[in-house]
Structure formats: C-alpha cells, structure tokens
Design a protein around this nucleic acid. Structure first.
Length: 421
RNA sequence: GGAGGGUUGGCCGAGCGGCCGAAGGCAGCGGUCUUGAAAACCGCCGUGCGGGGCGACCCGCACCGUGGGUUCGAAUCCCACACCCUCCGCCA
C-alpha cells in the first residue's frame, strides 16, 4: 500500500510514479479524493465527540435539578456522533479497499518495460554442452522411477506429482543444502504454518489482487500460502521493533500451494509448474535505509546456492511491467534448461520496501523521532522442483544418470543419482 | 468436543461505571553524585489518527485481545468471537 498522506501532499509526483505501475491518472485522483473525505470525516467526528464528552462530564457534577435537562442535551449530541461514526465507517471501508489494490511504487532503478523486457545483468557457471541428445527432466526422472506424474494426476489431478526414490532423496538433500547456505549468512531457519488467516494474506499483498491464485479452506477462514514469505512476513505483524533487533533474517522451509489459475496449457509438462512444491525462502526485515543493500545481499545468496550446485544461470533485473503488486524491484535467477533449450525462472527476490510493513503494521523505533515502517525483502534460496529440473538436466550423462555436484554429495550420500536398474 | 481461569503500555502488574491514557515496579533516556563505574536520588518516558506551528512543540480524538450492545458516560456491565493457560475426552 502506498502512503495516502504522500498521495495528497504530492499528487503530481505520486501520479507520475504510479503511472509507471500502470495506474491511470483518474484513479489516482479518485484515491486522493477518498483520502480527503476520510480526513474530513475524521475531523467532524472528533469535534462532535469532544462536545459530547464535555456534556457528559458536566452531568456528573450537575445539580439534581438540572440533571434531566442535561441528559437530554447529551443524548442529542450522542445521536450526532453515531451518525458521523457511520459516515466515517463508510468512507473508511471504501478507502481501505481502494488503497489495498494500489501496487507498490517502483524502484527508480527498475528497468522500464513489460514481461520479457528484463535486463540480463550477468551469468554464472558454464553452459553445459552434450555429445548426445540431452533429455528433459521428465525422461530422466521417470526412467529412474524418481517421479510419477500419472499417479499424481490420478490421486490429486493435473499439476501434482510424486517424487520417489532418488527424487525424494534429492528434495531432502537440496533443502538441507540450501538451509545451510542461508544459515551461514545469518538467516534463522523457520518451519512456519502454511495455513494462515486472511489478515496475513492481505498484509503481504496476495489479497485482494491475486485471490484467484490462492487455495482456501472451506470450513475455516484459512488460506494455504503460496510461499513461506506470507507467514514469515506475518511473524512481526502488529509489532513495534527495537532498532537493535534489526536486521531480522529468516529462512523459511515449507511447501507452497498455488492454483495457477489462468495458466492453462502453459508449462504442462513435468514439474516446472505444479500446484504444490517445496521451497526454502529467505526473508529479511531491515531498516528502510538498508533495503537496497539487503536486496543485493539476498541476490548474492541465491547465486551462491545455485553456483554451488555447479549450475549455469543468469541474473535478470525484472521490468516494472512485470512486477507483482508488492515489489518495488525484483531480480530473477534463470537457469539454463537443456531439455527446453531455454532459460527459465528458478528463483526470484523482491524488495517490497514499506508496502508489506504498512499493511502488516510493522515499525521500528528511531532515536528521537517517531517510529518508521521497516522494509521487507524476500527471495528464493531454493525452490526444490525447479532446482531438481535444472540439476538433473544440466548434470545428466549419456546413460541418463546424473552426476551429483560436490556440495550435495554429503547430503545425498552418493555421487551418482538416477542410475537405471 | 466438555469444564474452568485469563488477555491492561517495551516487559511485569494494579484498577472492576464519571476524578483512568490508566497506580506501582522493571527496562530505557537525561541529570546530580563519582577518578570511572555501580548504588542512591531527581526528572522524562505508549501508539495511532486529525488539526495547528508546519523546527527538537501545542491542541483535539481514538486505543486497556477483536467486534457488537447497555448507558448521558465503560478498561470497568452484557453478548459473540479470537488467542493463551489448567483439567477431562480424543488423537500423531
């Protein structure tokens, strides 16, 4: 959510900034009007309440003779207050809903453009070459009975899969490996709840905008998270933090659930786009001055995780037209997938600046001045299914087996996986 | 699922219709004292919103788990819900 105050105080600048995010001028002016009527309603109510309070106080000290008359007068004032309260509630509801749908302001350095206009900042690792026709992850994993898509579909539907045998082992090894890298960089490992209340979904910006992407439960007011970013951000909602506690850094380990509505026909093969996957997520709460540096820091951890697996990938600076509602700036890691002959997104890290903090009411004390909103950042340390794809496809050998990268050997317990029996 | 107890400021903890934004303590901040520190003593010390000065300040309103209700007036009374604790049942 943007700062309503800033919107009315500097309409021109805010309108220009929001135009970058595709918010039309008329809508910005409508928001400003809502903010002004909200303030007017508050002013009127406060004044009426002050009158009523004064009248009530006088009753306590009044002579019994004039009491009845004073009570009647106070009752009239009360009716006025009730009326103004209803008016404010109406304005406030409209205001809240309208502002909740406004995306975060883009970072000045985020590149212009729409999906596909990302700027490749750099690449790391070596793009593998093969003296045989490389297979894709489905062929490699199914041949070794490490993946069962057909039965996944039978039991749960399309976009669900079983990881078995080496596939299951690979998940455990990758999670453990990623958590260790994250811990080396000061992120505290966390296994969070994956069912959360609506408040946490709103606070992180997944509601109301992406409602159709989220699984919800029928009999309880709970939502299944699409990333542990939600419960990790929620960790400090409604909190006023002490400055010396920042930065707070976490590494969430959790399954993630996504409806993938509107993605019909897209990435239907294999486990690239599934309804349920496991992910290790980096999350930081920092002082607002430090969020740019923290963003680079999280990106570098992501690069370390991937390059540590001997994988080739590139870093993409995502254009404003392709940012989610909460992000001011986003970097993706795109790994080379020989099976698709393409680079595909395997991680993503966003600086959400004060967007989530405002919605979650998370602030930090400052020396002297008023508390300020913290900045929050999130990034994928490792998304298991996509990492598995990149790993088996890039490290495959002619016989369909996969060389386990050195860093993963201790966690897998073997140097080769997916050998056919 | 059943029965009880609880939820007050950064923390602990009083308050049980108007004098309560809220005693007291701890922590924190400033000062006196001290070679320095501790102790002692003095002072300050919640958050949000609205308005004004538009500076380190003043005024108003709101907030005692959340949402309703009673009342001229509620932290205090009533109802619902959420969460925490104890006991019983069930269960991994």
């Amino acid at each position: 959510m943007i700062d309503p105050r800033r919107l009315t105080d500097d309409l021109e600048a805010t309108a220009a900034a929001l135009a970058r995010r595709g918010v039309p001028r008329e809508r910005v002016e409508a928001l400003a009007a809502l903010e002004r009527s909200r303030r007017a309603a508050i002013g009127a109510l406060d004044a009426a309440r002050a009158e009523q309070r004064a009248a009530s106080k006088a009753i306590g000290a009044a002579d019994p003779g004039e009491r009845e008359e004073r009570v009647a007068a106070a009752a009239t004032l009360k009716a006025r207050v009730t009326e103004l309260e209803a008016e404010l509630a109406r304005v406030e509801a409209e205001h809240t809903d309208a502002f909740a749908r406004v995306p975060n302001l883009a970072h000045p350095d985020a590149p212009e453009g729409a999906e596909g206009d990302g700027v490749v900042l750099r690449a790391f690792g070596t793009r593998p070459t093969f003296d045989f026709a490389p297979r894709d992850h489905v062929e490699l994993l199914e041949a070794a009975d490490a993946l069962d898509l057909a039965r996944g579909a039978k039991v749960s539907g399309a976009r669900f899969a079983y990881l078995k045998g080496d596939g299951a082992l690979l998940e455990l090894a990758l999670v453990r490996y990623a958590v260790e890298v994250a811990m080396r960089h000061g992120h505290v490992p966390v296994v969070p709840p994956v069912l959360v209340r609506e408040d946490a979904m709103y606070g992180t910006g997944f509601l109301p905008t992406d409602e159709q992407q989220v699984f919800r439960t029928r009999d309880d007011e709970l939502w299944l998270v699409g990333t542990s970013e939600v419960p990790l951000a929620g960790l400090h909602m409604d909190e006023l933090l002490e400055p010396d506690t920042l930065p707070l850094r976490y590494a969430g380990i959790s399954p993630c659930f996504r409806r993938e509505a509107g993605a019909h026909g897209k990435d239907t093969r294999g486990i690239l786009r599934v309804h349920q996957f496991e992910k290790v997520e980096l999350f930081s709460f920092v002082h607002p001055d430090d969020s740019d540096a923290e963003h680079e820091r999280i990106l570098s951890i992501e690069e370390e995780v991937f390059s540590g697996l001997g994988l080739h990938a590139r870093v993409v600076d995502i254009p404003v037209g392709d940012l989610g509602a909460s992000a001011a700036r986003k970097y993706d890691l795109e790994a080379w997938l020989p099976g698709q002959d393409a680079y595909r997104e395997v991680t993503s890290c966003s600086n959400t600046t004060d967007y989530q903090a405002r919605r979650l009411r998370c602030r930090v004390r400052t020396t002297g001045g008023d508390p300020v909103l913290v900045h929050t950042l999130n990034g994928t340390a490792l998304a298991v299914q996509r990492a598995i794809i990149a790993l088996v496809e890039q490290h495959q050998r002619a016989d369909g087996s996969v060389a386990v990268p050195e860093a993963l050997v201790p966690h897998v317990g073997r140097e080769v996986l997916l050998e056919r029996r």
